[in-house]
C-alpha cells in the first residue's frame, strides 16, 4: 500500500499551470474589477481616481448596452435553433455507418478548424451584393439581389450562417459521441416490438441524448457571448451598431472609444451573465458519460 501511495505524482506538478492561470485569469479578473471602479480613459493623461459605481450606472443607463444585449440574444436564439437540429440530423446520418462515413466525417469537421478571420473574409466576398457567388446562385433561381451586409436583418442572418457553418460540426461531433454510447440492444428490442423509426427516435434516442444537448446548449450560449472574429470581419458590428453584440460592444468601448473603465464594468457584467450558464453547464455535464 505504502509503495502504491508513493507512486502517485504529487500535486506540486500543477504549480506551473497555477502560475500561468493566475497570470491570465485570476490577476486580470480582479484587476479588471478594480479598474471598473476607476475612471480610466485611454486618451486622457489625468491620473485615474476612484469613482465607485459610476461606470456601472453609466453603462446600465446606456441604450447601447441593452440593444447589444438584445442582438446577442437574437443571434444566440436563432443560432441555437439552426445549429442544434442540423447537427443532430448530420450526426444521425453519420451514425448509420454507411460506406464512406469516415471520409464524410473528416470533410464535415473541416469548417470548425479553419481560421475564423480567413473564413469571415471568404464569406464577405461570397456575400458581396454585386460580385458575390451567393447572390449569383440565388439569382439563377430567380431571387433578387440581397444587400446581405447592408441591413440589420440580413446582416444578422449572414452572421448566423457563417457561425453555423463553423459551429455545426461541433454540435454534430458531441451528438455523435452520445449516439455511439447508446447500447444497440435498446434499438433491437424496440424493433422487435415493432416500433417505427420515428418512434425509436422520439422514445429512445432523443431522451438519451438530452443531457448532451443541454451541455451543447450551454456551451453554445457561452460561445455566442464570445463571438468576435467572424463578426469583426463580416460587419464590424455595423451597419451602425445594428449587429454589435455585447462582447464586441465591450471591445469598442475600450479600444475604439477608449473608455477603459466603462469597458471593464461591461466585462464584469458579462461575467455575471455567464455565471448561471456556467453552473448549468457543469450540472448538465455530470449527466453525460
Amino acid at each position: 500500500m505504502l509503495r502504491r501511495k508513493n507512486l502517485r505524482p504529487v500535486a506540486q506538478l500543477t504549480i506551473p499551470t497555477w502560475i500561468f492561470l493566475a497570470l491570465v485569469v485570476l490577476i486580470p479578473f480582479f484587476y479588471g474589477v478594480y479598474i471598473s471602479f476607476l475612471n480610466i480613459n485611454l486618451a486622457s493623461f489625468l491620473p485615474p481616481s476612484f469613482v465607485g459605481f459610476d461606470n456601472y450606472q453609466t453603462v446600465l443607463a446606456a441604450s447601447e448596452t441593452w440593444s447589444t444585449l438584445r442582438i446577442t440574444l437574437i443571434i444566440t436564439f436563432i443560432g441555437l435553433l439552426t445549429q442544434i437540429p442540423i447537427g443532430i440530423l448530420l450526426a444521425l446520418v453519420l451514425h448509420e455507418n454507411l460506406r464512406g462515413t469516415k471520409i464524410f466525417r473528416s470533410i464535415l469537421i473541416t469548417p470548425m478548424l479553419l481560421t475564423p478571420v480567413a473564413v469571415g473574409l471568404t464569406y464577405r466576398f461570397m456575400f458581396d451584393t454585386d460580385l458575390g457567388v451567393i447572390n449569383w446562385a440565388l439569382g439563377s433561381i430567380g431571387i433578387e439581389k440581397v444587400n446581405w451586409l447592408g441591413s440589420q436583418t440580413s446582416a444578422l442572418f449572414a452572421i448566423i450562417i457563417v457561425d453555423s457553418w463553423q459551429s455545426i460540426p461541433f454540435v454534430m461531433l458531441l451528438v455523435l459521441a452520445a449516439l455511439t454510447a447508446i447500447s444497440p440492444s435498446l434499438y433491437e428490442a424496440a424493433r422487435v416490438d415493432g416500433a417505427s423509426a420515428s418512434q425509436i427516435f422520439r422514445r429512445i434516442t432523443l431522451p438519451l441524448i438530452t443531457p448532451t444537448l443541454l451541455v451543447i446548449t450551454m456551451i453554445k450560449i457561452m460561445d455566442f457571448l464570445k463571438l468576435f472574429d467572424t463578426l469583426f470581419i463580416l460587419t464590424r458590428g455595423g451597419p451602425g451598431n445594428a449587429t454589435t453584440t455585447l462582447g464586441l460592444w465591450t471591445y469598442k468601448t475600450g479600444f475604439v472609444f477608449l473608455e477603459f473603465s466603462r469597458a471593464a464594468a461591461l466585462g464584469v457584467i458579462i461575467t455575471i451573465i455567464t455565471l448561471p450558464v456556467y453552473f448549468l453547464w457543469r450540472r448538465a455535464s455530470r449527466g453525460v458519460r
Binding site: 462582447g247 466585462g267 458579462i270 455567464t274
Partner: peptide, 17 residues
C-alpha cells in the same frame, strides 16, 4: 473559466497590466 468567459473580459486588464 477560460473556456467559459469571453476573452475580451480578461484581455482588457491584461492589456493594461
Amino acid at each position: 473559466a477560460i473556456r467559459a468567459l469571453p476573452a475580451i473580459v480578461l484581455l482588457l486588464p491584461i492589456y493594461k497590466l
